[in-house]
Design a binder for these strands. Sequence first.
RNA 1: AGAGAGAUGGCAGAGCGGUCGAAUGCGGCGGUCUUGAAAACCGUUGAACCGCAAGGUUCCGGGGGUUCGAAUCCCUCUCUCUCUGCCA
Length: 430
Amino acid sequence: MGLKFYCMLSIQFIKENTLVVIEGLTKKHVKDAELLVNNAIDIDTRRRETQKELDDTNAEANNNAKQIGALMQQGQKDAAEGLKKATADLKAKARQLSELLQNYEDELKEVLVKLPNLPHTSVPVGRSAEDNLVVAEWGSVPDLYEGAQPHWDLIKKYDIVDFDLGNKITGAGFPVYKNKGARLQRAMINYFLDSAVAAGYIEMQPPILINEDSGFGTGNLPDKEGQMYHAVVDNYFLIPTAEVPITNIYRDTIQKESDLPIKNVAYTPCFRREAGSWGADVRGLNRLHQFDKVEIVQIAKPEDSYQLLEGMVAHVRSLLESLGLPCRILKLCGGDMSFTSALTYDFEVYSAAQKRWLEVSSVSNFETFQANRLKLRYKKDNQTHLLHTLNGSALALPRILAAILENNQAVDGIYLPKVLVPYAGFEKIG
RNA sequence: AGAGAGAUGGCAGAGCGGUCGAAUGCGGCGGUCUUGAAAACCGUUGAACCGCAAGGUUCCGGGGGUUCGAAUCCCUCUCUCUCUGCCA
C-alpha cells in the first residue's frame, strides 16, 4: 500500500485532462491511446471504490478494538469476547478487500507504465528522425586537404586511441586512450566542468554503480535493464549516464522553494551494453560501451522549467561554438523522442571526414514524469507539488574527439581548438 | 570478513501490547514586545490515499507473522555504528 506506484503520468492528471492526454499520446504514436486511457480511468474507479470499502472496514475494526480495550478494563469479559468474534470477521473481509485493491493497483500500474510522457505543445509532428526540426545551425565544414582521413585512421596514425588494446583487456567498444589522446580527453573533461561551474552548476562526483531503487527512480529499470551492465553478485548496475545517480540524489525528497532551481554538473564514465544497436556505420569512436561524459542536471519549479531548458541549450551551444565545430540543433519530433521526455533538443556536430552528423548532446525537459517516480517534490502554499527534472550532456566526449580529429587535421598534424590548449598543455597532435 | 549494538518526525531523542501519528529539546513558520534586531513569551510545524466537506484509512528502515488491538512481541532482509582483521 502507500505510494507503491512507479507509474509516470499520474492518474489524477489523466482523469482531469483526458483529451489532452489522448492527443499527446497520439503525437507520440502510441497505439490505441484512447482505449488505454479509458481503461486506466476505469480501473482507477474500481480501485477507489475498493479502497473506500476497505477503509470503512478497517475503521470499524479499529473502533471495535478500542471498545474491547475499554471493556477489558471494566472487566466485562463476555461483551469483549463477542466483539472479538465480530472483529475477526471484519479482519477477514479486510484481507480480501486489500487483495482486491492490490490487484487493481497492479492492473492500473501495468497500463500506466506503458504510457510515455506527453510531448510539449511545441514538439513537431513526425514519425522518425527525418521529421526532426533544425532550429539552429552554425559553423562551416572545413575544406580538408587531399588525403584527409576519418578518425579511426587518424587515431592509428598518431597512436592516440587503441582499440586492439581495449579488446585485449576487456572487449569491443572499450578503447584505451594513449598519450596525447588521453591528455586531450582529460583536458576536455576539465574544460567542460569548469564551464558548467562558471555557469552556476554545482559539481558532484557520484557513484558510478547504482542499486535497483535508483534504476527504477529514473526509469532505467525495468524497461532498459538489458542496456545496463549488471554486477550480479551485489545486484548493482553500472550507470549509463550521470543523470541516474545525480537525479537520484533527490529521490524521495521535498525541496524548499528557496533552494530551487537545483543545478548540478557531474563528470562520469558511462556504460552501455548497446545490445542490438551495432550496425555497419558504427565505427571507431562513434559508439562505445564505455565513454566519458559531463552531464548537467536541473530540478526546477514547473513554471520555470522551459526557460531553464533554454538556458541549458544556450550553455551547450556556447561550448560547441567555443570548440569551433560545425553544428546544428534539432528539436525532436514526437516519434523520435524518448519515452520519458516532453521536449528534447539534440545537438549534432559535423564530422568532416566521415561526412556525418554525430549526436553529441541531448537536452531534455521531463516535466513531472521522472519526479512522479522519484517522489521529488517541493512545498508551496502548504501543499506539495511535483517538480520538473531536466538534463543534458555538456558534453559527450568521444564524438567530440572524433570531430576535432577529423575537422582539424592538416598535413602536419591535428590542431586543438584554442580553448583546449591551456587545458591540454599542447596545441598540436603529430 | 568476525563479534556486539542499533534503525522513531527537518535534526536530536523518549516511548509498561490498548488512551501513540507519536513526549521533550533544537530548528522552521506566524505573532506579541522592540525604532530595528536579539532575548523572552504565545501559537503553529511529517507524508500518502479516499472524500465537496466533516471525517476516514495507511505509514515509527523493508518484507512477513502473533493478537480483537503492535512503534512496542516473533521471524527475515537491508543498512548504520563500535571493536577486531584486511586494504586503496
